[in-house]
Design a protein around this nucleic acid. Structure first.
Length: 508
RNA sequence: GCCGCGUUCGUCUAAGGGCUAGGACACCACCCUUUCACGGUGGUGAUACGGGUUCGAAUCCCGUACGCGGUACCA
């Protein structure tokens, strides 16, 4: 019987979750759901110096917003708790010690300054970053170079030390990546990575292997930046005797900055004026705020859809997918190998499409909230009409404010320059008639009737409708935009319409 | 430097030895709309380079170039 699929997203809580991170979550989630498996959220907080308060809560909130809730997490609990590596600290040491006993790892007593001077000493033009590997192992302060007694004594004396993996001098490690196919490395070119730090915490390398094993992870998806250390992890699975349970790997392509090259960073967003984080992130202490997609007016459906398409497609021309469709159609072997430059214009296009295809009921909650932030209150009935009228001209949820404000508030400014040059007494008089016509109109809720009546009136006065339609629009809206004028008039009501016409007439 | 991974319109991508290299975003033009959008039609625009293999290569192989990632007691 095949093992139950279990995947995990394992971020370290150091700040806001950016595009690449959310996409990794997405692919994990889609794969798990599609395979009827479990999706685990594990917090990799082994570096206490980088811990940022609030970052973990941000991750929960973010996954919730995106609709990618994990089955197991520090928050939700689960059969393999704890899910926070700092709380699993005591677990890791035994495995590191086991590796030392097996001769696959060793104690290293080198102090930070010693390592620094080692690197200084061996640094050359050809080799700018010398590695701690088999070539220098014997020259360092570790249990390979020291005698057994010396090592034992230092251990007994409590001399601070780390445990490093002993990478073989010349072996080939090969594994199959679900995206890239067969990948191999020569172990002699990989350094003796630290497994257990002096503070007793594991490094990522040890923790990821131990936890993936203990948590019965079957498929491990992560960013491409991890590919170079994959041989260490593969070896660890082997040395720990767990080779048969090693997950299948997939190293996801990176999301690149739009201009030039390189991994997308928060800085690029600031520089180029687009968000990189899923939601607003405020750095504790400095109160430095970075805008997120959510607050900018993105719908989670669109955000997730856009992210899914950044490096994956189903082979057809379809670009708009619901989460359910993605669950069905996603496949790791259709994920691209190459990195993708992020295009904010395309991201906005996705959102626009989603606003257009979403029904009023779906949009109402969000629009209501955004309106609230801008001091606009409305009845549900009116809101329904307004949203239906303006949604197709809103790219972002926040656009509803500008696109619909005039439905609820009388304009305070008017684009009079668009009217004045062609204004005359005849038009002034015409609008006087319009007012009385409107006041006596009986079927106010039928925009086409209003329009026909208006046009008939214009014809009777020898005025071309086109000459007075724009002025009417500006009287009601304030500017040259928005849905059909008579649709607007019908929604804002007879009284308000007349009031707005009168107000502008006085200014002309 | 070394190791690894990549490379199709400006951008995201399709095409897994065989039509004129297809679609989307963006851009341009026209149409629609007596506003602004939406929408519609059309257009500009790509297989990094060089060698092979083959009747035939974007596709397979080799090399080169370029890019990215890694090279921490960070993840």
């Amino acid at each position: 019987m095949a093992k139950k699929v279990r995947v995990r997203f394992a971020p370290s809580p150091t700040g806001g979750l950016h595009l690449g991170g959310v996409r990794t979550v997405l692919y994990n989630y889609l794969f798990a759901r599609q395979q009827g498996g479990d999706f685990v959220l594990r917090i990799e907080d082994t570096d206490q110096s980088r811990y940022v308060p609030g970052a973990e809560e941000y991750i929960y909130e973010c996954l919730k917003w995106c609709g990618l809730a994990p089955d197991e997490s520090p928050l939700a609990g689960g059969p393999f708790a704890p899910y926070r590596q700092s709380e699993r600290k005591e677990l890791y040491r035994q495995y590191a010690e086991f590796l030392v006993q097996e001769g696959k790892a060793y104690y290293a007593f080198d102090r930070t300054e010693e390592l620094e001077s080692f690197r200084e000493r061996f640094k050359t033009a050809e080799n700018p970053s010398p590695q701690y590997d088999h070539k220098v192992r014997q020259q360092m302060r570790n249990s390979c170079a020291l005698t057994f007694e010396e090592t034992e004594r230092m251990l007994a004396d409590g001399v601070p030390h780390v445990i490093r993996i002993r990478m073989p001098e010349n072996e080939t490690v090969t594994f199959t990546d679900m995206i890239r196919g067969e990948v191999s490395f020569n172990t002699g070119l990989v350094d003796d990575k630290v497994l257990l730090k002096a503070d007793g915490m594991p490094t990522y390398h040890l923790a990821v292997v131990v936890d993936d094993y203990l948590m019965k992870i079957t498929h491990a998806f992560r960013g491409e930046e991890w590919l170079p250390s994959a041989p260490v992890h593969v070896l660890l699975w082997k040395y720990l005797g767990w080779e048969a349970d090693m997950p299948q790997w997939a190293h996801l392509p990176l999301i690149l900055k739009p201009d030039g090259n390189g991994k997308l960073s928060k800085r690029d967003g600031d520089r180029l004026g687009f968000p990189v984080f899923a939601m607003n992130w405020t750095v504790p202490g400095t109160n430095d705020l970075t805008k997120g997609f959510r607050e900018l007016g993105f719908m989670p459906e669109a955000f997730v859809n856009m992210l899914a398409m950044l490096g994956w497609n189903d082979g057809t021309d379809q670009e708009l997918f619901t989460l359910d469709e993605l669950k069905q159609k996603f496949s790791m072997d259709r994920v691209h190998k190459g990195g993708a430059k992020f295009d904010f214009e395309k991201a906005k296009w996705f959102n626009h499409e989603w606003i257009k295809k979403s029904d009023v009921a779906r949009l109402k909650t969000d629009v209501k909230q955004i309106f609230g932030q801008h001091g606009i209150t409305a009845t549900d009935e009116k809101l329904d009409k307004v949203i239906a009228l303006v949604k197709e001209r809103c790219t972002l949820l926040t656009d509803f404010v500008e696109q619909a404000k005039f439905f609820f508030q009388t304009p305070q400014q008017w684009d009079l320059d668009a009217i004045k040059p062609k204004w005359n007494d005849a038009k002034q008089a015409f609008f006087g008639d319009v007012i009385s016509y409107f006041q006596n109109a009986t079927n106010w809720n039928v925009p086409t009737d209003l329009e026909n009546g208006f046009k008939e009136l214009a014809a009777a006065k020898q005025i071309k409708p086109g000459e007075v339609l724009l002025p009417l629009r500006i009287m009601l809206v304030g500017g040259k935009f928005g849905p059909g004028v008579f649709d607007i008039a019908a929604v804002i009501g007879k009284e308000e319409t007349v009031l707005r016409i009168k107000a502008v007439l006085e200014k002309l």
